[in-house]
Computed example of a mutant assay.
Amino acid sequence: MNAADQVRAWIREEIASIHADDAEEARQLKAALAWVDSGAELCRRAKPDTPPEHLVSYFVVTDETAQALLLVDHKNAQLWLPPGGHVEPGEHPRETVRRELQEELGLALPHELGSPLMLSRSETVGLTAGHTDVSLWYWLRIPRQQALRHDPKEFHGLSWFGIDALPLARSDPHLGRFVRKLRATQPGPIKGRI
């Protein structure tokens, strides 16, 4: 297997590991697998939209109790988003999380990263609107008192939001779905309504 085929296999495996909770999610997963299997280019080569559909690794950061989420005020998207970034050619999506965590928040990955919890497909908005991000959503936990530094070129700032105080009207349209799925799959103190 050549390097390009290996990367495609990694991406397919990450997508196939996600359990669909409903018909819409099953449809999105099926479409994403068909996209991977089509031979289409999966990683962005040039900003903002070459190719017009490309892969992103989000990492939703919660505190230890999963009662608060860390979001970044993204300059380009003009939204409060989970940190993350575009998967580079030749890069495993989990390596993207490791790289972006260091670049965007100044942190090393605090624990082993599991499979993505969710996948979404969204048309981008903001200053570089008009292309499609296929996003793998990973979950990681860090202590809320952890010192963080954000990338001022990309973000106006960052903030912890209580699980019941998320800025859903000014965030990724799939963030609420992610939180609902996190609550359904994780035992423990994730409370409130989304």
Results as ranks from 00 to 15, higher is better:
90 G>E: 03
147 A>Q: 13
80 W>Y: 13
106 G>C: 01
156 H>T: 09
127 L>H: 13
95 E>C: 12
190 I>N: 15
26 A>S: 11
42 L>I: 06
69 L>F: 13
145 Q>P: 03
83 P>M: 10
48 P>K: 10
114 G>R: 06
91 E>N: 13
148 L>G: 00
43 C>L: 05
99 R>C: 09
28 Q>E: 10
84 G>Q: 02
29 L>I: 13
43 C>V: 10
17 S>C: 03
167 P>Q: 01
125 V>R: 15
64 E>H: 13
74 H>C: 06
27 R>E: 10
121 R>Y: 03
67 Q>E: 12
58 Y>E: 11
158 L>G: 04
38 S>C: 03
11 I>L: 14
148 L>N: 00
63 D>V: 08
88 E>N: 14
68 A>C: 10
40 A>W: 03
18 I>S: 02
128 T>E: 05
92 H>V: 02
194 I>V: 12
80 W>A: 09
33 L>P: 00
116 P>L: 08
132 T>N: 04
58 Y>G: 14
110 P>D: 01
115 S>P: 08
34 A>I: 07
47 K>T: 06
175 L>I: 09
113 L>E: 01
71 L>T: 10
24 E>N: 15
118 M>T: 07
85 G>P: 00
96 T>F: 08
188 G>D: 00
100 E>L: 09
52 P>Y: 00
45 R>L: 08
14 E>K: 15
48 P>Q: 05
123 E>G: 15
78 Q>K: 12
7 V>L: 08
189 P>V: 06
97 V>E: 01
191 K>R: 12
95 E>P: 01
51 P>I: 04
122 S>I: 05
104 E>I: 06
83 P>V: 07
84 G>E: 01
59 F>D: 13
91 E>P: 02
74 H>P: 03
9 A>F: 02
170 R>H: 09
6 Q>K: 09
110 P>T: 02
28 Q>D: 10
29 L>F: 05
139 W>E: 07
160 W>T: 08
84 G>C: 04
167 P>D: 02
71 L>G: 06
82 P>T: 08
135 S>R: 08
64 E>T: 11
126 G>C: 07
71 L>W: 00
4 A>M: 09
10 W>I: 06
27 R>A: 13
180 R>K: 13
4 A>S: 14
182 L>T: 02
86 H>K: 11
193 R>S: 10
86 H>E: 06
58 Y>V: 11
4 A>F: 06
178 F>L: 15
152 P>L: 08
68 A>D: 09
108 A>Q: 12
62 T>W: 02
56 V>R: 15
129 A>F: 04
87 V>D: 09
58 Y>W: 12
185 T>A: 13
121 R>H: 07
69 L>N: 03
176 G>A: 03
15 I>V: 14
4 A>G: 11
157 G>M: 06
76 N>Y: 04
122 S>P: 04
148 L>I: 14
88 E>V: 09
178 F>W: 11
